[in-house]
């Protein structure tokens, strides 16, 4: 069943057009990867879905409901959560407060402070520390946990591995199946193509605001991805 469909989505920053008619579909319980070079429009796409960039209503449809024109708080209420690029924790809040604020809408679901601490046990020890005292990997865990606290049906992750050590990235990606197991669909935006292919079941490649390639991740040919990524 299609959870989210994006239909011919366009996006502009002033006179600059960032997206030229993007269409994609995400099934419930699926991990979809979006790859592409810098400036391909990946973050713009996620921000549009999350409601940070306003669109025409029918350009984004969630579970049959046109939601393109809704703002971010209304999207969270409907179960779409974004882990923003660069984590962006709230510096004046402690780790625990960062998590609690993610769950402040009290959307019903499996995720709670306790479950997030089970997912990332090291956060429990640091719960009362200021969020900026954590390492990059730990901060990323808080950012994911904060998004999960809203009990999303769809979790959007922007550049999870950016600036993190490979071992930490591996640790974080290892938790994705657990998240999926709770019935949440996940979209990951990645610059690390190998990581994206390995983690996802379906893959889209963006290039200069267009979808240049899509398909089941395990059936896409390495050269085809390379061509779609670099546009050669």
């Amino acid at each position: 069943m299609t959870l989210l469909s994006v239909n011919d989505l366009t996006a502009f920053y002033g006179d600059f057009q960032a997206l030229y008619g993007i269409s994609l579909a995400i099934e419930a319980g699926q991990i979809v990867a979006i790859i592409g070079a810098n400036g391909a429009g990946k973050s713009t796409l996620l921000n549009s879905i999350a409601g940070l960039i306003p669109n025409r209503s029918d350009m984004i449809v969630l579970d049959g409901e046109p939601v393109g024109a809704l703002r971010a708080p209304q999207m969270v209420m409907r179960g779409v959560a974004l882990v923003p690029e660069g984590r962006r924790l709230f510096p004046s809040l402690t780790v625990k407060e960062n998590l609690l604020i993610g769950g402040q809408l009290r959307r019903p679901g499996p995720w709670s402070l306790k479950r997030v601490f089970e997912l990332f046990p090291m956060l429990r020890e640091r719960a009362d520390n200021p969020s900026h005292s954590l390492s990059g990997g730990q901060q990323q865990m808080v950012a994911i946990g904060r998004a999960l606290m809203s009990n999303p049906r769809l979790l959007l992750c922007d550049e999870l591995s950016l600036g993190l050590a490979p071992i930490v990235v591996k640790e974080i990606y290892a938790q994705l199946p657990t998240i999926l197991g709770e019935g949440t669909a996940v979209v990951i935006v990645e610059q690390n193509v190998m990581q994206a292919v390995a983690a996802s079941s379906h893959l889209y490649c963006l290039q200069e605001g267009h979808v240049s390639l899509e398909g089941a991740s395990n059936q896409l040919d390495h050269d085809a991805i390379k061509a779609a990524y670099f546009g050669v």
Binding site: R71, A72, S92, L93
Partner: peptide, 22 residues
């Protein structure tokens, strides 16, 4: 939780909206 929302909004308005804060 009220004060938490104030502080979060003060830190980063955009991300505060992603937490469902109007």
């Amino acid at each position: 939780s009220f004060g938490r929302a104030f502080r979060a909004t003060s830190d980063d308005q955009q991300v505060a909206q992603l937490m469902g804060i109007e």
